[in-house]
Amino acid sequence: MNGSRSGYVGSLLAVLLLVAFAIGTAGAWPPLVAVESDSMAPGVERGDLVVVTATDRSPWGEGVVGSDEDEPPERLGGSGDVVVFTSPNVPDRPILHRAAFAVTAGEDWTERADPDRVDDDCVELRSCPAPHDGYVTYGDANDGYDQSTGISPVVREEWVHAKALGSIPTLGYVRLGIDAAIARFGLVPATVGIVTIVAGASGVVSVILGRVRDGRRIDRNG
């Protein structure tokens, strides 16, 4: 009983330490973002897990680099920074999209836009002229800019939570499952259940590895 309890506590501490390290290093919460749609395909697809950091952390300086700038960085299968931001149009659902270019208040940004991503003139768009300084954004797989399709107004600097570093295929389904468990059962019960599962899985793996080691010792002694 004591051994099981010690293993449970050890697993819980390990999870907490891992989370604390990730937050401290990334400077953003959550440091791992699960992709829920295919709007950034093919570079990032639904179920992928994206690693993000705060915009003022290494390896970047301050600000966001748009895909239209000279020699923009390559992020997640395309040019320009991929950012996590919150739109007032969908405030309960952070968006992971690519920055196209920065705009200033009052600017007719359609003059710099890719004609394949915007069909209307400035006077026909709610976010044009730009109501404030910020960024025009888009999903790689979407036909239009977020500001021409109604997904978001021009994205203010303070709406941007993080930049994307890279992605891990399919691992995001684990995060989506955790989020679903928290939404259904609550944070504390879901956390206890997850830690219990991790502790149990760790115990099973330890037993299997122990038997493998014991088998090798028997073979050598024999």
Score class of each variant (00 low, 15 high):
residue 2 N to Y: 03
residue 4 S to C: 06
residue 7 G to C: 08
residue 8 Y to G: 07
residue 9 V to N: 13
residue 10 G to I: 03
residue 13 L to K: 04
residue 18 L to G: 12
residue 20 A to C: 09
residue 24 G to W: 11
residue 29 W to A: 12
residue 32 L to H: 07
residue 33 V to S: 01
residue 34 A to K: 03
residue 34 A to V: 11
residue 36 E to Y: 09
residue 37 S to Q: 09
residue 39 S to K: 02
residue 42 P to Y: 09
residue 44 V to K: 05
residue 46 R to F: 08
residue 48 D to C: 04
residue 52 V to F: 00
residue 52 V to E: 00
residue 52 V to L: 00
residue 52 V to T: 05
residue 57 R to P: 13
residue 57 R to M: 11
residue 57 R to Y: 10
residue 57 R to K: 15
residue 61 G to A: 11
residue 62 E to M: 07
residue 63 G to D: 04
residue 64 V to A: 00
residue 65 V to D: 00
residue 65 V to Y: 03
residue 66 G to S: 03
residue 67 S to E: 14
residue 72 P to A: 01
residue 73 P to F: 09
residue 75 R to Q: 08
residue 77 G to M: 08
residue 77 G to R: 07
residue 78 G to T: 03
residue 78 G to P: 01
residue 78 G to M: 02
residue 80 G to Y: 14
residue 81 D to C: 01
residue 83 V to E: 02
residue 83 V to P: 00
residue 85 F to L: 06
residue 91 P to Q: 11
residue 95 I to R: 01
residue 96 L to A: 05
residue 97 H to I: 09
residue 99 A to Q: 00
residue 101 F to D: 00
residue 105 A to H: 02
residue 107 E to H: 02
residue 113 A to P: 02
residue 114 D to R: 07
residue 116 D to K: 12
residue 119 D to C: 00
residue 123 V to S: 15
residue 124 E to D: 15
residue 125 L to G: 13
residue 126 R to E: 15
residue 129 P to M: 02
residue 129 P to G: 08
residue 134 G to L: 08
residue 136 V to L: 01
residue 139 G to E: 02
residue 144 G to W: 11
residue 144 G to P: 03
residue 148 S to D: 05
residue 148 S to V: 08
residue 148 S to G: 06
residue 150 G to F: 13
residue 151 I to P: 00
residue 152 S to I: 06
residue 152 S to D: 13
residue 154 V to W: 00
residue 154 V to R: 02
residue 155 V to A: 01
residue 156 R to I: 05
residue 157 E to S: 11
residue 158 E to S: 12
residue 158 E to N: 11
residue 161 H to F: 04
residue 162 A to W: 10
residue 163 K to L: 01
residue 165 L to G: 02
residue 165 L to R: 12
residue 166 G to P: 01
residue 169 P to V: 09
residue 175 R to Q: 13
residue 176 L to E: 13
residue 176 L to R: 15
residue 178 I to V: 15
residue 182 I to C: 04
residue 183 A to P: 01
residue 183 A to Y: 10
residue 184 R to S: 05
residue 184 R to D: 04
residue 187 L to Y: 15
residue 188 V to P: 03
residue 190 A to I: 05
residue 192 V to F: 10
residue 193 G to D: 11
residue 194 I to Q: 12
residue 197 I to D: 05
residue 197 I to H: 03
residue 199 A to P: 10
residue 200 G to P: 11
residue 200 G to T: 14
residue 203 G to V: 07
residue 203 G to F: 01
residue 209 L to T: 12
residue 214 D to F: 04
residue 214 D to A: 14
residue 216 R to A: 11
residue 218 I to P: 00
residue 218 I to V: 11
residue 222 G to K: 06
